[in-house]
Amino acid sequence: MRPRGYWRRIRNALKRLRTALKVPLMHALSALFALGLDRSSCSIDDLADWSPQRILLVRTNRIGDLLCSTPLIAALHRRWPHAEMTLVGGPRNRAVAPLLPYLHRGPEFRRDPWAWMRLVLWLPRQRFDLAVSLCSEMLSGVFIVAASRAPLRMAVYASPRTAPAFNVFAGHYDTHEIRRYWTAARNLGVALQDGPPRPLIELPPNHNEVAEVILRMLDIPEHAIKVGISIPSRADRRHRRRAWPHTELRSVVTGLVSRGIEVVLSPGSRAERAEAERIVQAVPGARLLPETSLSELAAVQRRLDAWIGTSSGLLHLADAVGTPTLMIGTPALARSWAPLGPLHRQVCADDPEHITSRRVIEAVVSLLGEATHRAARAA
C-alpha cells in the first residue's frame, strides 16, 4: 500500500523537473529564433524621437489574457497614433479586436504546422518596424516576433526564458496581470485614465441601443437591479478545478431572485448553455442571455449593476466597462487576475467546491450596497 500523499509527491517532483528543463530549453530556442537579428539592447528613452509606421502585436491565448493586455495596446496607439497596428491572435481572443477599432486583424494563429508556415511567409512581407509580444513567457510570441524580422522587438519584461529574442522591454514583472500592463503603459510616457488599473476598450457608438434591445428581449424592467452571472467552464480538468459546483451556482441564482434581483445567465460553450438552461427551468425569474458577440455582451454588461464570475474573459470584460464585479476562485488566481478597485470583491477558497452560496450572496449584496452608496455620493 502506498503511503498517503505518495502520488502527489511524485506529481510535484515531475512538475519541478519539467520547470527546471523548460527554462533553459526555451532560452535556447529564443536565442535560435533570434539568429541574424540585431540584438543590441534599447531603452524606452531611446524611442523618444522614433516614429514607427507599422507595429505588430502578438497574443495567441485567451480572451481574458488579451483584455488584460489592453492598457499597453492603448498606450502604444496613443504614443504613435499614426502607426498601423496589426494583431496576430488566436482563434478565441480575436473576438476582442472589434473593441479595439484602431487594430487591424492579421492571420489567425493556430497550433498546427500550416498556420506556422503561413505566418512565416506572411510576416517578412509586412516590414514591421516594431513587434511586441504581449506575453513575455510564451514561445509562440517569441517565434512570431522573431519571424517578423522587425528591428525592434519588445516584450513587457525580461523573462529568463525568452529574453534573447527581444531588445527592448516596456516594464518589469508584476504578479498581477493587469497592473503589469498598466505599469508598462505608464513607462511609455502615456497618461492613462484616472482610477485603478483595468482593461481599456472602446464600445461601438450604438452600444446603448444594442443593450436596450437585448434587455427588452429578456423582459427586464429598466430600473430593476440587474446582476449577470457567467456560467463557469468545465471543459477540461484545469477549468473544472476552478469552477464552483452547479448546485451552489443554482442556489446563488435562487437566493438573488428571491431578493427581487433580476439575474441574467451568460453561457459560453454549448455545454455551458445547457447548464444555464437547466438553471432557468429550475429557477423561475432567471433569464438566459441569447447568443451575442463580445461587443454586444459588453454593451449589456455596462447596463448591469454587478457581474459574478470565475477568473475568465467575461469577468475582465465587465471590469473594462466599469461594472462592479465579484470574482469566485482560489487565492492564487485572485492575486494574479482579480479586478482592482473599491467596486470589486473576491470570494476565494483553495478548493472552489468549498465556496458556499451564502458567502457569494452576502458578497453580492455588500457589493451592490457599496455601488449604490458611491453613486449617491457622486450625484
Score class of each variant (00 low, 15 high):
283 V>C: 05
140 S>E: 14
153 R>M: 03
375 A>K: 15
333 L>K: 02
77 H>I: 03
316 H>F: 01
274 A>L: 10
218 L>I: 14
277 E>T: 10
251 S>K: 09
199 P>M: 03
345 R>N: 14
30 S>W: 12
292 T>A: 06
201 I>H: 00
273 R>T: 13
280 V>K: 06
196 P>H: 13
65 D>H: 03
161 R>V: 00
303 R>I: 01
343 L>D: 15
222 E>Q: 12
310 T>G: 13
156 V>S: 02
322 G>I: 00
62 R>H: 14
285 G>F: 13
83 A>S: 15
214 I>K: 09
20 A>C: 01
227 V>M: 11
249 L>M: 14
224 A>T: 05
150 A>Y: 08
10 I>V: 09
130 L>D: 06
292 T>H: 02
328 I>K: 00
266 S>R: 01
253 V>I: 03
200 L>E: 15
90 G>D: 13
155 A>K: 01
369 G>Y: 12
94 R>V: 12
252 V>E: 07
166 F>H: 03
43 S>E: 14
264 V>I: 14
4 R>E: 10
208 N>M: 08
233 S>W: 10
25 L>D: 15
335 R>Y: 13
138 M>Q: 08
85 M>C: 13
371 A>I: 00
100 L>V: 02
63 I>C: 03
343 L>K: 01
87 L>K: 09
357 S>V: 01
188 L>Q: 10
187 N>M: 05
271 A>W: 07
82 H>W: 13
176 H>M: 10
352 P>F: 14
